[in-house]
């Protein structure tokens, strides 16, 4: 049964390229438009690139995330899952596949950000690691909000209200990692905290998400 669910999400990951492209297009445009608002004689691009990228990631990943469970709910697939193997496995599979969906394009975008914001290329590996951890945390928190707001009209506002305060630690430690790397300071402390938060979120929130999905009545 797990195999069937896994196969479904894996196939859908590739059959819906628009889902992969939509957030990343927004992300790329946000990042490339941002310098237009700056007086580049006063701000240094390299120190801005990483924080701007993080904020853009937060926004673009949240956008459309309220649809994560909506289609499965609409088609009744969620009902079938609830009746068979339960929701926990479903949630985990869904989360991993969705994270892949947002992570793969991020791998492409990061070098572009480094290029456009004149950051040193040597920072790439650590930044990629931090970006992977941060995006994983964003996905799991946003999925929690998506499960809560399932069946609500105009869930986007409530999603942001629920998710963004919870993501403050992720933002802080991801930003601190990037800052330390760019200043060639020790960055391990910050990224370990980031990893700890992401692990905590991934170990606890899937339970919360599946119990919230269990509460649905329609």
């Amino acid at each position: 049964m797990i195999n069937a669910m896994l196969r479904r999400e894996w196939l859908l990951l590739w059959r819906r390229p628009q889902d992969m492209l939509q957030p990343i297009t927004l992300l790329l445009l946000l990042i490339l438009v941002f310098p237009m608002a700056l007086d580049l004689t006063q701000f240094s691009l390299p120190s801005l690139g990483w924080p701007v990228l993080l904020n853009a990631v937060l926004l673009s990943l949240l956008l459309g995330m309220e649809q994560l469970f909506a289609e499965d709910q609409r088609t009744g697939y969620l009902d079938q899952v609830r009746m068979s193997y339960g929701l926990y496995a479903y949630v985990l599979i869904k989360l991993v596949c969705h994270w892949l969906r947002v992570w793969l394009p991020l791998v492409v975008v990061l070098p572009l950000v480094i290029f456009f914001y004149q950051m040193p290329l040597s920072a790439l590996p650590v930044l990629l690691l931090a970006l992977s951890l941060a995006s994983a945390a964003v996905v799991v928190f946003a999925a929690f909000a998506a499960a809560l707001t399932l069946g609500l009209a105009r869930a986007g506002m409530l999603m942001a209200l629920l998710v963004l305060p919870l993501l403050v630690p992720v933002l802080v430690f991801a930003a601190a990692t990037g800052q330390a790397v760019l200043m060639v300071e020790p960055w391990q402390g910050a990224i370990l905290w980031l990893a700890a938060i992401t692990c905590l979120a991934w170990s606890l929130l899937p339970w919360a998400i599946s119990s919230v999905l269990e509460l649905a009545n329609h």
């Binding site: 809560l148 305060p165 919870l166 630690p169 430690f173 905290w193 919360a208 509460l215």
Partner: peptide, 27 residues
């Protein structure tokens, strides 16, 4: 169901409060 869901939200939030405080202090 909404009461239960809100309870889960409150628990998730309260686990997060110390983490938020800690991270903000670090920042």
């Amino acid at each position: 169901s909404a009461y239960k869901a809100a309870a889960i939200v409150a628990i998730v939030g309260s686990v997060n409060i110390p983490i938020i405080k800690f991270s903000v202090e670090w920042w």
